[in-house]
């Protein structure tokens, strides 16, 4: 186990009511990395994050977070982790300043007043600090929550769908901030549903039905999928898509703006199968790079749904 591994867990398992929500989960996250957590709803992302910061006790598995044992030393981990929950979990009936002040106190932040003041300045909320947190819009709540979990200078940030319901501008600003933090040496583990955000991560992990399907950089994930994709444009794409879906060599047909992405796992077979369609008048076939989304949708379709088993 090298010093650089901030998160290093093996075989994490969690069962709720007989359902394996997280099954034999292992990852390793290095210091200063932005690690993206992807997967459909209910795939176990939140549960995994909660186990990492000591909010849930794993039923099985072991590992360390910031060098501390995740089962026995969760109290030590909590002090150095900033956890941003999926749902806004600061106090809506406290003002912005009171919320930050409360968090700073429970983490026993040195020079608290100064730290809170600086956080308010950086947020651009210094003038509105007396406003109740419950009155803020979704984007501002997200900024406030991030500011709150950075107050105690954590070494690891666990962000659970931090940008859900936030406008593109605020999202971009948020990601710039995350990259700045990573450059300072803070490790970030972030779960998301947005592909553009996934591409901003240094490494990705894709989870479905509690199982880790793949980890790697975005390029590695795409390469590993062996997908070949063609982009087609032309008239009556809807009708064409219906026909294409019946071709066995084609694993996936996905509308993509004014084009269709047609993918298969075996390039020569796909090529042969498409020959017949290329002759269609008005259609234009261009080889395309499979997107992360194509890859993930493909992986999800293939993953055994052990929840329904």
């Amino acid at each position: 186990m090298s010093d650089a591994a901030v998160i290093d867990v093996e075989g994490l398992t969690k069962t709720f009511g007989g359902r394996r929500v997280v099954d034999d989960f292992s990852i390793r996250v290095e210091r200063g990395q932005i690690f993206g957590f992807l997967g459909p709803n209910g795939s176990g992302k939140t549960t995994t994050i909660r186990m990492l910061c000591g909010l849930l006790t794993p039923d099985g598995g072991r590992g360390t977070c910031l060098g501390h044992d995740i089962i026995r030393e969760s109290a030590l981990i909590k002090r150095q982790v900033g956890y941003m929950t999926q749902r806004f979990s600061l106090y809506e009936d406290l003002s912005i300043r009171e919320n930050l002040d409360f968090i700073a106190r429970v983490y026993e932040v040195p020079e608290r007043q100064h730290a809170v003041g600086a956080a308010l300045e950086r947020l651009g909320l210094a003038k509105r600090s007396a406003q109740l947190a419950g009155q803020l819009s979704g984007g501002w709540k997200q900024r406030l929550a991030l500011a709150a979990c950075l107050l105690h200078n954590p070494r690891l940030l666990l962000l659970d769908e931090p940008t859900a319901g936030v406008d593109p501008n605020a999202r971009r600003e948020f990601w710039n901030r995350i990259h700045m933090l990573a450059a300072e040496g803070i490790t970030v583990l972030v779960s998301t549903h947005y592909m553009d955000e996934a591409e901003r991560c240094h490494r990705l992990a894709y989870i479905a039905y509690g199982k880790l399907l793949i980890t790697g950089t975005a390029a590695e994930v795409i390469a590993h999928s062996n997908l070949t994709t063609w982009s087609v444009s032309g008239p009556d794409l809807f009708g064409l898509a219906a026909e294409l879906r019946n071709v066995p060599a084609i694993t996936m047909v996905v509308p993509f703006g004014s084009t269709l992405h047609v993918s298969g796992t075996d390039a020569p077979v796909l090529d042969a199968a498409l020959d017949h369609f290329r002759a269609r008048p008005g259609t234009l076939w261009i080889p395309a790079e499979p997107s992360l989304e194509d890859v993930f949708i493909r992986m999800m379709d293939e993953a055994p749904d052990n929840f329904n088993a």
């Binding site: 956890y83 749902r87 979990s89 809506e92």
Partner: peptide, 13 residues
């Protein structure tokens, strides 16, 4: 009920 427990539990309190 308000979901604030998750945050509270994540702190060292």
């Amino acid at each position: 009920e308000r979901g604030t427990m998750e945050n509270l539990l994540a702190t060292p309190v």
